[in-house]
Design a protein around this nucleic acid. Sequence first.
DNA 1: GCCAACGTTGGC
DNA 2: GCCAACGTTGGC
Length: 155
Amino acid sequence: MQYWLMKSEPDEASIDHLASATGQILPWTGVRNYQARNFMRDAMTIGDLAFFYHSGCKEPGIAGICEVCSEPYPDDTQFDAESPYFDPKSSREAPRWLLRDVRFVSRTAYLTLTELRSHPELATMRLLARGNRLSITPVTADEWAFISRLLAEKA
DNA sequence: GCCAACGTTGGC
DNA sequence: GCCAACGTTGGC
C-alpha cells in the first residue's frame, strides 16, 4: 500500500469530473512520461490512495482523494491519430503507455500549492522539489498523515 | 554514447 | 504570456 499525488488539469479532468463519471471511475489517460508510466505500471497496487491535484490552473492545489482501482492496461489514446495523446511510435502489439483506472474517494478542502509550501514538514515532498514536473509522484506515509491532518483542520 | 536543439510542463 | 527546468530526439 502506497500513497501518491496525481496531477490533472481541471479543464481536462477535475475532481468533479471524476465524481460524476460512470461508477466514479476514470482511466488516468494522457501520461507520456516514462517515470510516471512506470509508477502506474510497476509501483502502484490496487487500493493505493492518491491526492487528486489540480495543476495548470489559477490556484493549483489538492482537491480530493482517489483510489487506484485497476491493474495497468494500455492507454487507448496512444493509438488514436485524432487524439492529442497519439503516439505514432507505439503499437497495439507493443504498447508504450499503460495506465490505471482511479475511483473517486472524496472531495477535500482545497489545499493550495502555496499552503503546501508554507509547511516545513512538507519541505522534502517530491511535488515541491525544485524543477519537479512529474505528473505522478510518490507521497510518504508521514506526508500523507500530515496533509490529512491539515485537510481535517480545514474541513 | 554524447550533447545540442527542441518540445513540454506548469507555476507565476 | 513568460520562462526555468526538465525530458526526448537524433545527428555524429
